[in-house]
């Protein structure tokens, strides 16, 4: 085994024990950390602040089902999950990458300000809620399948790409109230979505050439990460949804 690599058996470990072991491994110079038998342990990758000079080379590979808030406040590492993820993955994430070879629960990417999240299959309710962006930081979330209601609620920045690969032929997305309170960023969605499924404060606009090349880049990255052929996905099939106003509540007050 590579000296920078370590395998940890997570069976029976409380999240604080498991995360403390992971932190010690990073502090002692390990860069490839493989966690086996993960069963619901929360906050994996959350406690790595100052564990090493740079966390960008840290790879955490998880076998099993990590618990809620996987990669909350993540700031650099790459997390790969061979299994499904629960709620709150990438909560308030700053930098790094999370790839889930399965599905994700609710509020994936909540308040993320940077980094990338890839979900191979479907994600739950309120996906990408209150994602934001700042200067060069721009979070991107790619969902291979479809999502539940309130996609991109309060979204203030960043990009969400929904590939719709799990929809049957002729099946529409089922999510409603898409982009409620959205005031920044963009949602790219492939597959049929009706106007009544959208918040009244967002609308569809034409894709720019930059959007198209960005979509191609992320679809290719999805394909490479999960080893699936998605060459049939055409950027022209996407609907781009953006807020109609960047100040949705400007007229709320008497001034």
């Amino acid at each position: 085994m590579n000296p920078g690599c370590v395998e940890i058996d997570a069976s029976g470990l409380h999240f604080s024990e498991l995360n403390s072991i992971v932190r010690s491994a990073v502090s002692s110079g390990k860069r490839d950390i493989v966690l086996r038998n993960v069963a619901g342990q929360r906050y994996i990758g959350t406690n790595l602040y100052n564990a090493a000079e740079s966390l960008d080379q840290v790879n955490i590979t998880i076998y099993g089902t990590p618990g809620n808030d996987l990669g909350a406040f993540l700031d650099g590492p790459t997390i790969t999950v061979f299994g499904n993820a629960m709620d709150g993955i990438g909560n308030t994430m700053n930098r790094g990458l999370i790839a889930v070879h399965g599905r994700a629960g609710d509020i994936a990417g909540f308040s993320a300000r940077g980094g990338e999240i890839f979900i191979k299959d479907n994600a739950g309710y309120r996906t990408g809620i209150h994602m934001k962006e700042y200067m060069t930081m721009k979070p991107v979330m790619v969902i291979g399948g479809t999502v539940q209601d309130f996609l991109g609620e309060y979204m203030a920045g960043g990009v969400i790409i929904i590939l719709g690969l799990t929809l049957k032929k002729g099946e529409s997305h089922h999510c409603r109230y898409v982009g409620t309170g959205m005031h920044g960023g963009a949602i790219f969605i492939r597959g049929n979505i009706e106007e009544h499924q959208l918040s009244k404060t967002i609308g569809a606009v034409d894709l720019t050439p930059e959007d198209q090349s960005m979509l191609i880049r992320y679809v290719e990255k999805y394909s490479a990460l999960f080893g699936v052929d998605v060459s049939f996905v055409d950027p022209a099939e996407f609907t781009k949804l953006v807020p109609l106003s960047v100040r949705p509540y400007k007229k709320l007050y008497a001034y």
Partner: peptide, 12 residues
């Protein structure tokens, strides 16, 4: 706040 200047900061 780590948001672009001039944008509303909405706390739900």
């Amino acid at each position: 706040r780590m948001i672009p200047p001039g944008t509303d900061a909405i706390s739900p």
